[in-house]
C-alpha cells in the first residue's frame, strides 16, 4: 500500500480505478441552541437527509428543546446580541423589541421562500420518518416532561441511548 492509498476514502475497484466513496446512509443530528439560526440549520439538514433516503435521528438538547416545546416552538427568535452575522451593533441589538423586529423580518423572507415555521417543520420531518428525541438531562434541568414537548417527540433519552441509536452513522452537532 502506498502513502497515497492510506489518505483516501475511496477504494479502488478490481480494475484499480478509484470508485466513489460510500454514500452516507444514516445521520444523527443534535440541536442544542434555541435561536432561529440555531434551530433551522439542523432541521434543514434533517429534511434534506430524508429526501435522500438517509435514515435520520434528531436529538434536541439544552435550549434546542424549545424547538419541540409545546408552548415555545412557535416563538423561536433570532438573536440580535452577540451575533456578528446580524451586522448590528451590540448596543442596538440590545434595544427592546429588536429581536422581535429581526425575527419578523427573517420570518417574512423565510415565508417567501416557503420555509415552514418551526412547528410545521418538526411535523414534516416526523412525517418523513425521522426519529425525534429530547435529552433527558436537559429536560431534568428545565423541569420538562414528555407532556411539555410536542407529540412528534418519540421519547426522552439519555446521551448513552443517543449514542446507541447513532451507531453506524454520522453525528452532526449544531
Amino acid at each position: 500500500m502506498t502513502d497515497a492509498d492510506t489518505h483516501t476514502d475511496t477504494h479502488p475497484d478490481a480494475a484499480g480505478a478509484p470508485s466513489r466513496p460510500e454514500p452516507i446512509t444514516k445521520v444523527s443530528i443534535v440541536i442544542s441552541k434555541g435561536s432561529l439560526d440555531g434551530v433551522y440549520p439542523g432541521l434543514i439538514m434533517a429534511s434534506g437527509a430524508r429526501a435522500e433516503g438517509i435514515e435520520v435521528n434528531l436529538f434536541f438538547t439544552f435550549f434546542g428543546l424549545d424547538a419541540v416545546h409545546r408552548k415555545r416552538s412557535e416563538h423561536i427568535k433570532a438573536a440580535t446580541v452577540g451575533n456578528p452575522g446580524m451586522h448590528m451593533a451590540t448596543v442596538v441589538g440590545a434595544l427592546p423589541g429588536m429581536s422581535a423586529i429581526a425575527t419578523h423580518m427573517m420570518e417574512k423572507k423565510m415565508t417567501a421562500l416557503d420555509i415552514p415555521s418551526v412547528p410545521e417543520f418538526i411535523e414534516f420531518i416526523s412525517d418523513t420518518g425521522a426519529g425525534i428525541y429530547g435529552c433527558q438531562l436537559a429536560c431534568d434541568m428545565f423541569g420538562f416532561t414528555q407532556d411539555d414537548l410536542v407529540d412528534q417527540v418519540q421519547d426522552i433519552i439519555t446521551v448513552g441511548e443517543f449514542y446507541e441509536m447513532a451507531a453506524g452513522g454520522e453525528i452532526i452537532f449544531t
Binding site: 430524508r50 435522500e52 433516503g53 412525517d127 418523513t128 420518518g129
Partner: peptide
C-alpha cells in the same frame, strides 16, 4: 398524497426515487 404516504410508496426518498 400526504408526506407519510409518500415515504411508504418510495421509502428511499419520494422526490428522488
Amino acid at each position: 398524497v400526504p408526506v407519510k404516504e409518500l415515504y411508504q410508496l418510495f421509502p428511499k426518498g419520494p422526490a428522488k426515487i
